[in-house]
């Protein structure tokens, strides 16, 4: 018999994490753990390989084919490794109206990649995605799990440069918590500005 190379099971040294994930769901609903287990593997390895699918399938008690069928339903689980910086460009209508298509073309040009590709170094990969729920701050680029909103040409170039140095700048978030102090300051300076979100038509 030939010795096959053995792969250490992903969860072999993560039994606590595994127990925590399985413990989130009722005993009779163990199958629900499929998606979170896929997420764990993908976060660590940037894709979910056949071997990992088989491992996960065995943990939750389904066949590998079933698990793969579920995984392939979703566009954010990857069978092939994506880059350390997975660039996801929204091109749905609100973003398209703010230049999403040009943003996509620009990112392709700067990285030399197109939709679905990963570079040889494993640094960048590109994916076309649909509406990210950030239409008010279009165009939007999602890098791994973070949103970069209302991206400009110079902004995206700086971002790509930073990632080439392996520095991921903090996500820009114009709305919500981060600009609250700015909003408050603005309110104090213009308490009754009729053109501020409230002018009569």
């Amino acid at each position: 018999m030939v010795d096959l190379p053995t792969l250490q099971p992903f969860f072999a040294d993560k039994l606590e994490l595994l127990a925590e994930i399985l413990g989130r769901y009722p005993e009779y609903g163990r199958r629900s753990a499929l998606m979170p287990l896929l997420w764990e593997v993908q976060r660590a390895e940037r894709h979910v390989s056949e071997a990992r699918i088989e491992e996960i399938a065995e943990i939750i008690g389904v066949t590998a084919t079933e698990a793969k069928g579920v995984m392939s339903f979703y566009s954010t689980y990857h069978e092939q490794p994506v880059g350390r910086y997975h660039l996801q460009v929204c091109r749905t209508l609100s973003c398209a109206l703010a230049g999403g298509d040009e943003l996509y073309a620009h990112v392709c040009e700067r990285t030399g990649l197109v939709n679905g590709e990963t570079d040889a170094e494993g640094r960048f990969s590109i994916q076309n995605v649909e509406c990210l729920g950030s239409c008010g701050t279009a165009p939007v680029l999602q890098v791994n799990d973070a949103f970069y909103e209302r991206v400009t040409r110079s902004g995206v170039d700086a971002l790509l440069e930073a990632m080439r140095r392996d520095e991921l700048p903090p996500p820009t978030r114009e709305r919500g918590g981060d600009n609250a102090s700015a909003a408050k300051a603005e309110r104090q300076t213009t308490p009754a500005d009729p053109t501020d979100a409230g002018g009569a038509a």
Partner: peptide
């Protein structure tokens, strides 16, 4: 204008 708040929280009418 684009850095204006996202809600109508600052509008006393609402």
């Amino acid at each position: 204008e684009s850095s204006r708040p996202i809600t109508s929280r600052f509008d006393p009418r609402f």
